[in-house]
């Protein structure tokens, strides 16, 4: 059950997308999100969707994996769609019952918002699916390094993020184990009232917290033993360097953003 959580999961592979510099991918994701908000028409969305599908195809990530990742978002999607459907008063009135008014503008807006959220989430999934957590944080650190000038502890922040990402699967596995152990003693997590079910979480949360603290302690000791002392003067084993395919990617990204902007200029 918990194994289905795909947050931050990495699908190892050797496609062009996998081999792109993490900074390129991060910038591309930001550019794509900007393009999503610039686009105002179905033509623009169509273009963006085609681009996304093309990238998913060459990334060799199974489309199933992306669909599975989107499943937990169904509630948010429905919520947004319903809000837009009922509170937009534009175009022709389709339904007008009691206080509910649905207009063609509302239907259009709701569909667009859903498409926008779906594409936004899919492209970030594509990033985490094709980039290992370590190179992702390396890329982030490098992109945020100008902030060091104004004394932002960039290295420490990215290190924390890296550790957090690294421990998500570990903690999920641990939760699974503890749940099994308590189930073996007859704990019931699926039945009962809301209060009973909340109470049933105590036998999981207490051991989980204890083990998280234990792991944090062990990790701190291990890092100290290796003389870790933060970002100052630290060198990298893998230096980030842009290659030719990164330039190609930037070119494609720039073209896409320009195309969407031009479409908007012409009111499409």
């Amino acid at each position: 059950m918990l194994k289905d959580i795909t947050l931050g999961q990495f699908f190892p592979g050797n496609s062009v997308i996998h081999r792109l510099d993490p900074r390129t991918k991060l910038i591309m994701v930001v550019a794509y999100i900007v393009a999503l908000f610039v686009a105002q028409s179905w033509v623009g969305y169509g273009l963006l969707l085609a681009f996304l599908l093309w990238v998913i195809r060459i990334s060799t990530i199974p489309p199933k994996a992306i669909v599975r990742g989107l499943k937990p978002l169904v509630m948010i999607l429905l919520f947004t769609a319903v809000l837009n459907l009922f509170f937009t008063r534009e175009g022709m009135v389709l339904v007008d019952v009691w206080i509910i008014t649905i207009t063609t503008g509302g239907v259009n807006r709701a569909a667009m918002m859903m498409a926008r959220i779906l594409m936004l989430i899919s492209c970030t999934f594509l990033l985490t699916y094709t980039t290992s957590p370590i190179s992702l944080t390396d890329g982030l650190e490098s992109l945020m390094s100008p902030l060091k000038r104004i004394r932002v502890p960039v290295h420490e922040l990215t290190m924390m993020m890296c550790i957090a990402l690294r421990f998500i699967p570990t903690l999920i596995e641990e939760t699974d184990k503890i749940m099994s152990a308590q189930k073996a003693r007859g704990a019931d997590f699926e039945n009962g009232s809301l209060v009973e079910r909340a109470k049933a979480l105590i036998p999981i949360l207490v051991p989980l917290f204890i083990s998280a603290f234990r792991r944090a302690d062990e990790l701190a000791t291990a890092m100290e033993c290796r003389c870790y002392q933060g970002g100052d003067g630290r060198t990298k084993m893998k230096l980030l360097r842009y290659h030719r395919h990164d330039m190609t990617a930037f070119g494609c990204g720039a073209l896409l953003v320009c195309a969407v902007a031009v479409l908007r200029y012409f009111g499409l």
Binding site: K177, A181, Q182, K183, A184, I202, P203, V206, P207
Partner: peptide, 27 residues
């Protein structure tokens, strides 16, 4: 679950109650 008792690896990591008595009484 009750007729076949399963003790996991490193079962001490599943303890959660305030006292030993309460923890043994959970099952």
């Amino acid at each position: 679950r009750f007729r076949v008792g399963l003790v996991f690896q490193y079962p001490e990591y599943q303890l959660f109650e305030e006292t030993v008595y309460k923890d043994i009484a959970f099952g």
